[in-house]
């Protein structure tokens, strides 16, 4: 495995779950919980004759950023598409719960200065959602994660990172949307329904799942950044994500709340305005949306380098 310094310069897209988990927190600080030696794998896969992973495709643990504990959840797309089953789902949900438990410990130990030590949860998504081999348990685990995210509201920030190969889809698309802050790279994709299902529903003329560039634009980091669904767009490097996390963990909660897209009456009313705008645009392509929000010749944004894009792109203003 690469050392911490090498991980910093590594592509986030190419990195596996454990590399991301270690590289996102301070050097040498990451301690994995339920590591592969504990052999907590799915009990359901062997019954169906499927291979297992000793970590069930998810790496969870605790690290530090400065004096703050950071709870990391990192999904491994190379194992059954990063899908959530009973074990991986419980690992995810309980990690957030441990973050909340830690907040109470810190408040007790540092009654005066707990805020500067407030824990954070970071989720590095690479998943299509529910694991079909144990779909019912996976679905129930999703509900549990959503429930605990609501428990964490205004207590500990939850930050989503999306920049891995499989993106973040299915039920995990809800989970990411429900977190406080979303950081994407331009290779990240965030959505709900996979392209093949949309094609099946709408017909190939309307949505051609084999048109990779179009599919990419629909859910890709650049689009989600212009739309405001992604709060930040960063370079495809582990340290680019880490540096952004470092900024966010220090923010006061009233500011973090402003990053949210859903989770309050006010948020919902704002999102309904977005729907009305979409009905007005009637977009055939995400590019039409970029034009509507003030990007001249929006198709030219496609070919820009990351830095040029960041300079040029006009984002939807949230009123």
């Amino acid at each position: 495995m690469l050392n911490w310094e090498e991980l910093q310069e590594s592509s986030f897209l190419e990195s596996n779950a454990r590399e991301r988990a270690k590289g996102l927190v301070d050097k040498g600080s990451f301690v994995e919980l339920l590591n592969p030696r504990d052999r907590f794998h799915s009990p359901h896969l062997p019954v169906l004759g499927e291979a297992i992973a000793l970590d069930d495709g998810i790496v969870v643990g605790i690290g530090k950023i400065g004096i703050r504990p950071v709870f990391v959840i990192s999904q491994e797309g190379r194992f059954i598409g990063g899908s959530l089953g009973e074990v991986s789902g419980a690992k995810m949900a309980y990690t957030i719960k441990l973050g909340l438990e830690t907040l109470e410990r810190i408040k007790e130990k540092y009654p005066e200065s707990w805020e500067e030590r407030r824990p954070t949860v970071v989720i590095s998504f690479e998943t299509g959602g529910v694991r079909l081999h144990e779909a019912n348990a996976g679905l129930l685990a999703h509900a549990e994660v959503m429930d605990i995210i609501q428990d964490a509201r205004k207590k500990i920030p939850i930050i989503s990172l999306i920049g891995s190969k499989l993106g973040c889809f299915g039920g995990m698309g809800f989970v990411a949307a429900a977190t406080d802050v979303i950081i994407m790279s331009e290779f990240g994709r965030l959505g709900l329904t996979g392209p093949e299902v949309i094609e099946q529903e709408m017909g190939k003329d309307e949505f051609d799942a084999s048109n990779r560039a179009m599919v990419y634009r629909t859910t890709g980091g650049r689009h989600k950044y212009i739309l405001g669904d992604s709060n930040y767009l960063v370079q495809d490097k582990i340290n680019a994500f880490r540096e952004k996390i470092q900024e966010v963990v220090h923010l006061p909660f009233d500011q973090i709340e402003q990053y949210r897209r859903i989770g309050s009456l006010q948020n919902v009313l704002q999102q309904m305005e977005l729907i009305n705008e979409a009905l007005e645009i009637n977009p055939n392509d995400a590019i039409d949306v970029w034009g509507f929000y003030g990007n001249e010749n929006p198709e030219t944004l496609l070919d820009l380098s990351f830095d040029q894009f960041m300079q040029k792109a006009v984002r939807r203003e949230i009123r």
């Binding site: 698309g173 809800f174 989970v175 709408m202 669904d229």
Partner: peptide, 17 residues
């Protein structure tokens, strides 16, 4: 809703909300 506009606008937010 499994559609194109749904994904462009972000269906995940609607039912997530």
């Amino acid at each position: 809703g499994p559609g194109k506009v749904e994904e462009i606008v972000g269906m995940n937010k609607s039912t997530g909300a």
